[in-house]
Nucleic acid binder design. Structure first.
Lengths: 214, 214
DNA sequence: GAGTACACGTGATCC
DNA sequence: TGGATCACGTGTACT
């Protein structure tokens, strides 16, 4: 199956020695083999480059590699877009809440293994909240790819972009996933001392400006 | 064993030359054409998908498309790394500061047009800061691709990932750029009312936890 | 042998 | 006419 990448950059000395079988048949202009070979090796060079760029794409057949590339481009592009969207709604709201949402399964179907999960927590700001969130994330063995935190008027909203493991993403189809566990962990963080320091100092004006187009 | 490529000695047996013995009719198992065709159309499907994904990649030949894909993957991958690094240092510090830093030119050379600029502002939190930052960014006609804001203990740190225009990125080589203008604009935001509301309420404990690994 | 995967040469087609 | 790009079928190698 896997071609183990043995042949590459073989320009080959094209000698005149052997009669090319076609004899006087000069029809297929004898250098379009070469032109085509050159073209192929340009394409394959780029393919090889992509192989080095993608983390786990070595030892994949050509089509799968391209599939992985598509996935990555969508994912990274999605991150950028999601970041913009996330920044737009990152303003902390009045009520406490936690949420977990599967990575957007790309409408064009084709790959639905979404390792990315977006989670958010909105609550009163307090010392130690960061560490608690970090612990919660680690408790479900996820990795924080990005964290966006907005704290204003004593209310804070954290939007976490998480990367659950490969096996976790593959284990469940579409629904389920480790969402409940994650949500529970985050809710625990929120409830741990919800009322404790709703101190007077944190009761401040909140400003109207959205974060859109910052 | 040895892959013995480029042995063009036997291109001979092709076409109608020899009368095909009766059995030869399905020599190359007739479904192999079909299998290969299927493979090709898998690859090309992914290629087409990439074409739709990339902004200006339509009407490009296959090799050039892949080149563009390589470029984009490098670019986006760099963004992701920068995002992680940014999150790690996003904790607001004691002193006010502004900074601007060119997008990292990817070590693997090949493309050095860096439209991406990273800017950060660290100062006391205050209402309206967001809007002022937004105005500053727009004043140098840049676009905020992502914004990460951490506010703790009344101190806030905003890290902005900016996209200066194409022409601006191309206009200057490596240094210069529109950095001074951007830096000046941000500094103006910082100085506008630096002392105004260092109100008693914002003098709170700061917690030690870094954002790393959140 | 069945299956898959690759490089190759070639005919078609469009500047 | 020639250069460039594509899809196709086929030979070959590895599992």
């Amino acid at each position: 199956m896997v071609p183990v990448r043995s042949d590459e950059a073989e320009v080959a000395m094209d000698g005149e020695c052997s009669a090319p079988a076609a004899t006087a048949r000069s029809g297929p202009s004898r250098s379009h083999s070469e032109a085509e070979r050159k073209r192929r090796q340009r394409i394959n060079a780029h393919l090889a480059t992509l192989r080095t760029l993608l983390p786990a794409a070595s030892r994949m057949d050509k089509a799968a590699l391209l599939g992985e590339v598509v996935r990555h481009v969508r994912e990274l592009r999605g991150e950028a877009d999601a970041a913009a969207a996330g920044a737009a709604v990152a303003v902390p709201g009045e009520g406490d809440e936690v949420g977990v949402e599967d990575g957007h399964s790309w409408r064009g179907g084709e790959r639905t293994t979404t390792r990315r999960v977006r989670a958010w927590v909105c609550c009163a700001d307090r010392p130690g909240l960061m560490s608690e969130l970090g612990r919660a994330v680690r408790s479900v063995s996820a990795r924080a790819v990005r964290a966006e935190i907005a704290t204003v008027g004593g209310r804070t909203r954290s939007v976490l972009e998480l990367d659950v493991g490969e096996q976790q993403a593959a284990a469940d189809g579409e629904g389920a996933s480790s969402r409940p566990a994650l949500q529970a962990a985050l809710r625990a963080v929120l409830l741990s001392r919800e009322e404790l320091l709703a101190s007077e100092c944190y009761k401040r004006q909140r400003f109207s400006g959205h974060l859109t187009r910052v």
